[in-house]
Design a protein around this nucleic acid. Structure first.
Length: 280
DNA sequence: TACCAGGCGCGCG
DNA sequence: CGCGCGCATGGT
């Protein structure tokens, strides 16, 4: 097992886990287990550090996953230098947020499930998905389940997915599985510029503008993405005095305003707004 | 009971 | 193009 130590100034465990970018983590002792595909790490804040425990062979994977080569001090500085008071405030609260480099398949399935849904329920559905179909694994005596592969998922019928709570989203997930299992290469899309990548994602049934923005941001790390959901729409109306209704245009408004900082600022805002309503 | 949640597809004008 | 509606599910 490897122990990785980072300064926690721009890497806070709870901020990064609870800001809404991912769904598979559980509290344990003084920290959290985080699951990515078939991998697991334990992470906690100690004193002024963030400590990550991971299997030796996964060190490089998680160094990249946690986006360690990115300069978050600079992003935070840009947030403090905007004209927008709400960006300054929310970035202070979410200073320790990093945007992780998620697995593309897991991210797309997860955010298809997320539509018109709430975070606790999304977490529950994804957990059921993993315990039912994922491979059983252990990490230092801790048992967990991997995110299932596309081929394993394809062995289940639509009734299974309805039964674990996907509702009408079940057919979207099945359609996406069929696409992936017939050779559609989601890795290969990474080289596309943001707009083109988004266009390709939008052709997939069940992926609309909001889910596409989450995927480009969280799985392809296109930081000129600004997902607009009900919370962000509230921020837009209340803190930016906005009156546009079309969420695609609201997103465009923010991307034109914040450029390559859009995704980071969006996470600050989302985390802050939800925390005001007492959600975790 | 109606409304809401990290919305989307579809049909209509 | 924009708009309104139906859609599964569980919590408040």
């Amino acid at each position: 097992m490897k122990k990785l130590v980072f300064s926690n100034e721009y890497f806070n465990v709870e901020d990064s886990l609870k800001c809404g970018q991912l769904f598979r983590f559980v509290k344990h002792l003084n920290g959290y287990f985080l699951y990515v595909l078939d991998k697991c790490v334990f992470m906690c804040n100690e004193d002024k550090n963030t400590i990550i425990y991971c299997p030796d062979q996964d060190e490089e994977y998680f160094y990249n996953y946690f986006d360690m080569k990115n300069d978050y001090a600079n992003i935070y500085l840009s947030a403090q230098n905007t004209q927008e008071e709400i960006i300054k405030i929310s970035s202070k609260k979410g200073k320790g947020i990093r945007i992780f480099n998620q697995d593309k398949f897991e991210c797309i399935v997860s955010f298809i499930i997320s539509q018109n849904n709430n975070i606790p329920r999304i977490k529950g559905i994804i957990e059921k998905l993993c315990t039912s179909l994922g491979e059983k694994k252990t990490f230092e005596n801790h048992t967990y389940f991997a995110f299932p592969t596309a081929s394993k998922m394809a062995t289940e019928s639509i009734d299974f997915y309805r039964q674990i709570g996907l509702g009408y989203r079940a057919e979207y997930v099945l359609g996406f599985l069929k696409l992936v299992n017939s050779g559609f290469d989601i890795e290969n899309l990474a080289k596309l510029p943001t707009e083109e990548l988004k266009e390709r994602l939008l052709k997939i049934r069940g992926i609309g503008p909001k889910v596409a923005d989450c995927v480009t941001l969280f799985a392809y790390h296109k930081s000129d993405s600004f997902p607009v959901d009900t919370w962000i729409e509230k921020v837009y109306r209340e803190n930016f005095n906005g009156n546009i209704k079309d969420r695609r245009k609201i997103s465009k408004y923010f991307v034109e305003k914040f450029g390559n900082n859009s995704g980071y600022f969006q996470q600050y805002l989302f985390y802050y707004k939800r925390s005001l309503e007492n959600r975790e």
